[in-house]
Computed example of a mutant assay.
Amino acid sequence: MKTSNPVLARLGQAAERERAAGYAPAGAYGQPEYGQAYPTAGGYPAAPPTVQPMSIDDVVVKTVTLLGITGASAAAAWVLVPDALAGAAWIGAAVVGLVLGLVISFSRMANPALIVTYALVEGVFVGMVSKFFESFYNGIVLQAVVATFGVFFLMAGLYKMKAIRATRKFVRGVIAAMVGVFAVMLINLVLSLFGFNTGLRDGGALAIGFSLICIVIASLSFILSFHEVEEGVRMGLPQRYSWVAAFGILVSLIWLYIEILRLLSYFQGDD
């Protein structure tokens, strides 16, 4: 099956290999290991079991599940992590989450356990960041949460009405913008470690402009996620790949939330 999305193309190829090999989790319901034939009473191999295709409902359920895990982890971290360890928990969760995110993104197989672990770790990160901002600006977390889901449902509505279409040029443009923004963030982080202030995160006009750009790109990334879900259903990807689609939506939601939180802080109180 042809698709212009490189992620879907990779997952589609992996799914085809799974179907051809008769994939089933090792040991489940007495089934053989990956790639082994399914024996019958007569000793002849039987056809592999039918792979249940993913649906939009599957993605919705998985997304809500991951959001619930992230929210619960964030709340637990907020309450249980001592203030003295908040910085270490923040940085540690950010690093571990980044590594897990890269592994999941570049993996050729859907791994629900790894994705759930990512949600748990990112929950700690989100909880620590939220607690930090809330300690300075009362009510800012609720404002950011409402704004984040408001943007998400707006983009979902625009995609449903086909006001924004995930054309080949659009997909390439958004991906290029995301890579560019993340490169700038990385450079800014490295420079800040050596004492250089680029002004991208100090609350000034440049910082506000950069956060707005990030918010726009994060919002447009939802269109890519919705398109991936739609194409994944059309291509008949196995049900387990709904975890990958839900992971993509979760990543965009967390990024959007952090950027909105940061932007709101620029307009509240003194720097």
Rank of each mutant, 00 (worst) to 15 (best):
F194Y: 15
I223D: 03
M161Y: 07
W243G: 01
S221A: 13
W90A: 04
M161K: 03
L186T: 05
G127N: 02
A84E: 15
A20L: 12
S4Q: 13
R234E: 04
Y38A: 09
S55R: 03
A86N: 05
V7E: 10
M54G: 14
G87D: 04
Q36I: 06
S73P: 00
R172I: 01
V151E: 04
E230R: 11
Q36N: 11
P39K: 13
F152V: 04
L253W: 10
G12E: 09
I187M: 08
A156Q: 06
E231I: 09
V103C: 08
A176K: 07
L186W: 13
M235W: 07
S211N: 07
L98T: 14
S135M: 11
A21S: 13
V179F: 05
E16D: 15
P39M: 12
V233M: 04
K131V: 14
Y137T: 09
D57P: 06
G97V: 07
G203V: 10
A75V: 13
P45S: 03
I115T: 10
F152P: 05
G123D: 09
F132S: 11
G30C: 13
V244G: 08
T40W: 15
L100T: 14
F153H: 07
A177H: 01
F153M: 13
T117F: 08
G71S: 00
